[in-house]
Each structure stands twice: as structure tokens, then as C-alpha cells.
Design a protein around this nucleic acid. Structure first.
Lengths: 336, 336
DNA sequence: TTGAAAGCGCTAACAC
DNA sequence: GTGTTAGCGCTTTCAA
């Protein structure tokens, strides 16, 4: 089964020998340090290329006392992650910063829960140089553990309350403003809210914005746990006086509202307008196609990674100017 | 900004000193080797616990010449990954095997394409001990690179043609049989096929199974690239004689068919039955709720990781008995 | 059963 | 500008 020969990997000594220089010269050359003449440098790099040599990550990690890797621990049920456009886009964004910096991403999916030991292990073993924290709660048990260990951390999101760590945040809250404004422009006044679990800070932020933007006439607000989405969608529509629109904190939730409306004999968008969030690829595929709010989570991930790399280097985080969310109007919202 | 004191991490020497033994004894104790008396072992473990010490991953990697990490490189557009239930479930499954084995997962998302240099870098730097390959194509440029380097590899899927590596595969093909059988039982004969991009082996397998199961009267088969899903859905419905059912290789594709049917004035399931695949959380949320096929990709990921760890250890892969796919009948399919 | 010591491959002082 | 050398923290012979 095993393929190919268990060929010995070349080491820096092989490269040095081949280029006729010292190991130190090789090290300096590949790390772009001064102290090597251009000609020598070129010869060294050529030798490295010919041998297919790259510095061993573990040897570097040992001498530099850093792993050149960061950790992302996701403590959610896989089904929840599947339903959330955020993660994949955010991951792709992290990568955009990490790869050019020679950093790797250690991803750990753990069953829902605090997952403290996952953090503890990765940090204590020195596998990662820092963490990006998502899904921050208050109080968050991870804070104490990581702050005490002195591990560099960046929070993706806006922690309610005190945070010992720097954080980055998108302008997603404005997206909720935009969704409500869009509906009001279409003549809607009784606008309900269907959000994800209440413990998520981003859900709370959107809830607050909805409440503010929808004003006095706002309808019901309901939070949906992943396993009870359909029931929650029915609940937001139930009762009197009837809503004419619902804003949701994700596109799958909006789909659930569309389904619940159908059961209740309401046509979307004729009888009820529904807006989603995140503008997932599903929004365009659903019927009716969903009005949604596009937030650039890729850019967010890239900024979070940049802030973390800065923290690891002991530097201040680079500026992050999140772009404005964009409302994408589709068929699920209409003038009432 | 930086949090906590940059506390020096304890080393094996600290633990040895505290326990009053040699470093070797500590090493033997934490690695569960013989040669340490039970009492001493306990004393050592207690000292390690008190100091919060864990063996440094990079130091071990250096001496053992293995990283205790495996790589997964996903060369797909983020939007494609978002639409695919496979990845998250598969990742969660990998983790189920890796975590207990003390292995970490290095995830790299790269722009769509061959991504050979991502593999090359991770392997040459010794960051990972092996790779799990998904989305295998024929011919696959990764094979030569990795086989030549002697890197342990396991393929998740069934490579068409010769493969230098061991592979694991689910019984997803039977899922297509089940979907078609379900529709035939409902009285459908002209059953179309809407699949993902033709270059994916799993799409080809399902296409072949559909063709076989749907028989002579089978309808059109259309492949959809992610950016043209809606058009592909229209295409599969176009032309005469009209189909009475469509099977798809994913739930989002099924949603697109439902939407296209609506545009064409066809009601689902009254005029057209539609079946999805993967049984993503969306299937239950869509309207109508989608009949779909559940394949256990978590179990698949766990098996792939187990096979890879075995390959790394130079052992034969453990047996994998994939469970049968389960058809989940919902409202999108009905008797014609 | 335990201790001493030699590396693993690299980086970074420090001489030359 | 270039070479020498001492570790980084651990595993693993080899002696004691």
C-alpha cells in the first residue's frame, strides 16, 4: 500500500554542501537576511530548489519558539456549521492572510460546548501561536484560560463586556438596518424578527438593531435553535395583528419562514415579505429567491488573521475598515 | 493589547527536577512506556500536571520526524463549499479519529485549481505526515507529486483508474439507486438528472447509477457549474417529452429545480417530483421539504483519517464498513 | 529501574 | 561577508 520510496529528506547541511557554503549562509539566504552576497544567495537558492529542500517546520518552530500556525476551534454541532455561510467564508479569509505569511491554520471541530481542553492542549503543546475566537459569549470561560496562559488571541466579533483581547468586527449590524429600511420603504410596518440562538452576540446585535429600526410597530422577535427552526418560524408568524414582513438573521431561517407562511396559506411576497441574511448561495436558488444582506466575511477573516499575526509579533493590529453590508433585493420582498 | 505575562513555558527538565527524576524518566512516563515504576510514574504525572506541562509538539516532531498532523487541502471556491454538506460533516468525522490519536488537522483552503504547491510546501516543510485527498479527478496531478515524494496519502472517494494510494469510499452510489427506486415506486418513468460538475468522480458515479436505474425511459442529464445552477435547472426541465421527476446530486440543486419548475408553471410535487441528495439541514426547511438521501459523511471522514493514520504508521488500513444510505422521503416527491 | 548523553534540523550569536 | 558553535525541548540508545 505504501507508495514511493521513504526517501530521506534533505537538510540544510545538504544544501550548504551543495552550494559550498555554511549552514548559516543557507539559513540567512532563505530567510532573506543581509549578510549574504547576491551571487551566493542565488547559488544557495538554486541548490535548495534542486534538492527540493524547504526548512523543516518543526526545527524552525523549535529554535524560534513559535509554530507559525494559529488555531481555530469550532465548538458547534456540524449541522449548525453547515447552515451558516459565515464559517467557510471566514476560513477562506483567514487563509488569505495566513498563507502569504507562511502561517498554517489548525482547525479543530469539537462537539458543542466550551472546549477548553482543546485550547489548553494546542497552546500548552505549542502547536499554535495564537487563537482566533468566534462565537464569543458572556462570560466566556476561554478568556481566563487564554489570558492567564498569555496566549495571543484575537476575537472575531464584538465582545459584550470587558475583553482582555483585541477584537475585530464587521458592520453586520448595519445590514439589519438596511433590511428593515428596505422593508419600510416597501410600505411594511409590522416587521417580525427571527433570529438564531439568543446567546450569540451577533444575534443580539441584530435583534437590537431590528428593534430600533422597526420602531414601535415592530412585531414579534423569536429565536430559533437549530433543531426547532420550523417551529420557531411558525411562532413568529402566529398571533395578531398579522405581520406583513419578517427579517431573519440567516437565509435558512428565511427559508423556514417561507415554508411556515405557505403552511399558513400566506404567499411570499404577496402576503408576506421575508428577508434573509448573509446572502448565501441559497438565497438565489430558493423560491422565491430571497432578499438578503451580504456581509464580507472573507475580508473579516483576513482582518482577524492579520490582527492575530500582529498580536503574535507584539505589534499593534493593522487598521481594518470593514466594508458596508449590501442589501441584495430579490423576489421574497415586495411592496405591500 | 497583549494579554498576560509572557510566562516561560515549563520544559521536561522542570518536570524532571520537580519529580526528582531524569528527563528520560519523564519522557517514558508520559509516553506510557515500560521502565518506570508505577509510583514514580504517578509522581511524574503529578508534577507535569502541577506545572501545566505538555511535551512540546515541535520538539517531539523534530526528534520523532513526524508532525502528528495531517493536511486537508480544499481547492474549491468558497461558495461551492458552502453549498456542499459534505465538507463540514467530513471534517467533523476526520476529527473524531484525529483528536483521540493526538493528531491535528491542518486545513488549507486555496482558490480552485490543482494547488500542487500547497501540497508540496506542507510536505516539504514536514508540517504534515500525510494527506487526505478529496475531489479526485482523472488524471490527478497530485498523485505523481505525492507518490514521488513518498508522502502517505489516502483518497476519500473511489479513484477511477489506477491509484498509487489506498482509498476509502462510502456507499453513496446506492443512494442514487434508492432515489430512483423511490420515484419509480411512485409511478415515475421519465426521470431527469441534475448533477454537479462532470469532472467530479462522485457525480459520475451517481450519473451512471441513475442511468442504470432509470432505464430506457430516463430523461435528460445535465451538469451544473455552481455559477449556472439556475440555467442548468431550466435546461433539465426543457424539451419534450416532459419529465415527471428529477433526481439531483445535492439539495441546493434540487432547490434550483423546484424554482425552475415554478417558473415553468409546474407545481412540486403535483406536476413534478424532485429529489435531492445529502439530506442537508436545508432539505427539511425548503418548501416543499425535499426528499433526499442521507449518507454518513462523518463516518466516512473518520474512516479516511483512520486509514491515513495507519498508512503513516506503515500498517494496513482498518476495515471500514460504510453504512447504507438512507432515503428520507419528504414532500417534494409524490405519486404521479 | 534510572541517569547521562547524543542527536533531530534549524536559528542566531559570535568570531573570523 | 562568511564560518563556528551553542542551544531550542524532546526521544532514545547505552550504561550504571
Amino acid at each position: 500500500m505504501s507508495a514511493g520510496a521513504p526517501r530521506r529528506r534533505p537538510t540544510i547541511a545538504d544544501v550548504a554542501r551543495r552550494a559550498g557554503v555554511s549552514q548559516a549562509a543557507v539559513s540567512f539566504a532563505v530567510n532573506g537576511r543581509p549578510g549574504v552576497s547576491p551571487g551566493t544567495r542565488e547559488r544557495i537558492l538554486a541548490a535548495a530548489r534542486e534538492l527540493g529542500w524547504r526548512p523543516s517546520a518543526s526545527a524552525r518552530a523549535l529554535t524560534e519558539a513559535r509554530a507559525r500556525a494559529i488555531g481555530l476551534v469550532l465548538a458547534r454541532d456540524p449541522a449548525q456549521i453547515e447552515l451558516d455561510s459565515f464559517f467557510v467564508r471566514f476560513l477562506a479569509g483567514l487563509e488569505r492572510t495566513l498563507a502569504p505569511a507562511g502561517y498554517a491554520l489548525l482547525l479543530q471541530l469539537v462537539p458543542a460546548g466550551p472546549a477548553l481542553d482543546a485550547y489548553e492542549r494546542l497552546a500548552a503543546e505549542g502547536r499554535v501561536d495564537g487563537f482566533v475566537l468566534t462565537d464569543v459569549e458572556v462570560p466566556d470561560a476561554r478568556f481566563e484560560l487564554l489570558a492567564e496562559a498569555g496566549t495571543p488571541v484575537v476575537i472575531a466579533g464584538h465582545p459584550a463586556g470587558e475583553s482582555p483581547f483585541p477584537w475585530v468586527e464587521t458592520r453586520h449590524a448595519e445590514g439589519m438596518d438596511a433590511a428593515v429600511a428596505h422593508l419600510r420603504e416597501l410600505g411594511h410596518e409590522r416587521i417580525g424578527f427571527l433570529g438564531g440562538p439568543a446567546e450569540y452576540e451577533h444575534v443580539q446585535v441584530r435583534l437590537a438593531r431590528w428593534r430600533e429600526a422597526a420602531g414601535e410597530a415592530a412585531g414579534r422577535a423569536v429565536h430559533a435553535r437549530p433543531e426547532h427552526v420550523a417551529a420557531a418560524a411558525r411562532a413568529v408568524l402566529a398571533g395578531a395583528p398579522a405581520l406583513t414582513a419578517v427579517v431573519c438573521t440567516s437565509d435558512p431561517l428565511a427559508m423556514a419562514v417561507v415554508a411556515a407562511a405557505g403552511e399558513a396559506g400566506l404567499a411570499v411576497p404577496q402576503d408576506l415579505s421575508v428577508a434573509g441574511f448573509d446572502d448565501s448561495p441559497l438565497a438565489a436558488l430558493a423560491s422565491p429567491a430571497l432578499t438578503s444582506v451580504r456581509v464580507d466575511y472573507g475580508e473579516f477573516g483576513a482582518a482577524a488573521a492579520a490582527a492575530l499575526l500582529a498580536a503574535i509579533a507584539g505589534e499593534p493590529a493593522p487598521a481594518y475598515s470593514p466594508s458596508a453590508p449590501a442589501l441584495v433585493a430579490r423576489a421574497s420582498t415586495a411592496r405591500r
